[in-house]
Design a protein around this nucleic acid. Structure first.
Lengths: 223, 223
DNA sequence: CGAGTGCTTGATGGCAATCAAACACCGTGG
DNA sequence: CCACGGTGTTTGATTGCCATCAAGCACTCG
């Protein structure tokens, strides 16, 4: 559906700004390839990364209720994105109400993830948040798994710092702490760990998601 | 619309749990009177309050994508609430697509507010977050104002602590710091301050909201 | 009038920030 | 070919925000 409504595809290098905080909101973007950060910049020059977006994600949706964008969208890797104008939502709303309901649901899912982050940043030490971040990335990239897993995470320690709400110096100390505790292994940007042990350490609950709620898909096959 | 779909009204005393984290999700609630906290509980027994809900708010919406509730809903004051079953969303989706789109928008607004909180908790000292909290409550209760304003906030310092992600002891020290700096006045649970000065101190941007986006309400009067 | 709740203040300690300085790696240009 | 700046990583020393522990006070309520 979005494919018909979206604009021309663009390739952008790492560190490129797809949209800056404060820009007039023209619409949203669809991420087709690569990783994108959505972040907030603070008056003192620091930034807090709100979310790492993976391919398939819709970028910049929260700002559709604002005249000027709240978040900066920046390319964490080489990326491919496509713009989607605001008018697309008008089309969806009129012609695909069920898809609109499904967008509503996915934004609730985003609220759950943001809430978990808020609780973690407010209440748990940085080492546990780092563990939780690795786990969450693995879940989103590969789904639940058992036994030791490997994960390629093309993020610098500076990126981790902005995600976790700490400094890059401290990221390094924590990483070293997890390495010497044997909780993770690392070679370059490849991380290896046991999800079970890491989850226990992180203290984060495992979340199950309802994919097709009964109220939206009344009886399988009738749709 | 919700009035037709909701269940019987209930009155609950302060500290009552409307729904506990982990409960099976039956639906959402509408808050008719009083203040309600939605909070997450952590393994170590601490809690992080995600949001203070004011009358008119929908409670527990994020958990509709989960089999078991993520947030605990607890009464901050004497409250009146009414349950809304999940099936109500099916009715809305089928019969009131525009209302569904409007729910989608308000959940984006919640994402913006959560994002601001996340950035604040991750990146700013507690005194500034306290200032931001007072401002946000004032904006939601009374709308933008100029000159000195007064605000009744029926929250204990323990409540503030769980909202800000600090301890109640530290809330007290920060409150005293703001008082002696002349940024706020307080008598009992009534706070008086100058929004301009407090906003400058807090470092939070002022947010404008789009109420009726063109794509949802194409031409004023046609709807 | 004792128990509970909420507020206040002091002393001490820890997690993480800040400041500082190397080191490795890489692409560029003289 | 090597010098060079830029980016990213690593480690040490010091500082500061906030947690923790502790204790006292005010107020309300059964």
């Amino acid at each position: 559906m979005f494919e018909q409504l979206r604009g021309p595809v663009q390739d952008l290098p790492r560190h490129a700004r797809i949209r800056r905080s404060g820009d007039r909101v023209q619409g949203v973007f669809v991420l087709l390839r690569g990783w994108v950060f959505s972040s907030v910049e603070l008056p003192n020059g620091q930034r807090q990364i709100l979310k790492v977006h993976l391919p398939g994600d819709i970028l910049g949706a929260p700002s559709i209720v604002l005249p000027r964008a709240m978040e900066t969208l920046s390319a964490a890797t080489l990326v491919t994105v496509a713009p989607v104008p605001l008018s697309a939502f008008g089309v969806l709303q009129a012609e695909a109400p069920r898809l609109m309901a499904s967008l509503f649901l996915s934004s609730q899912q985003e609220r759950v993830m943001l809430s978990d982050r808020l609780a973690a940043v407010g209440r748990t030490p940085a080492a546990q948040r780092f563990a939780a971040l690795l786990l969450q990335l693995h879940d989103r990239l590969a789904g639940p798994a058992t036994g030791t897993v490997s994960l390629h995470v093309p993020l610098t320690q500076e990126d981790f710092a902005d995600l976790l709400g700490i400094t890059s110096v401290h990221v390094n100390r924590i990483l070293r702490q997890l390495l010497s505790a044997g909780l993770i292994l690392r070679r370059q940007y490849d991380y290896t760990f046991d999800p079970e042990r890491l989850r226990e350490f992180s203290g984060m609950p495992r979340r199950e998601w309802i994919r097709n709620p009964a109220w939206l898909y009344p009886a399988p096959g009738q749709a």
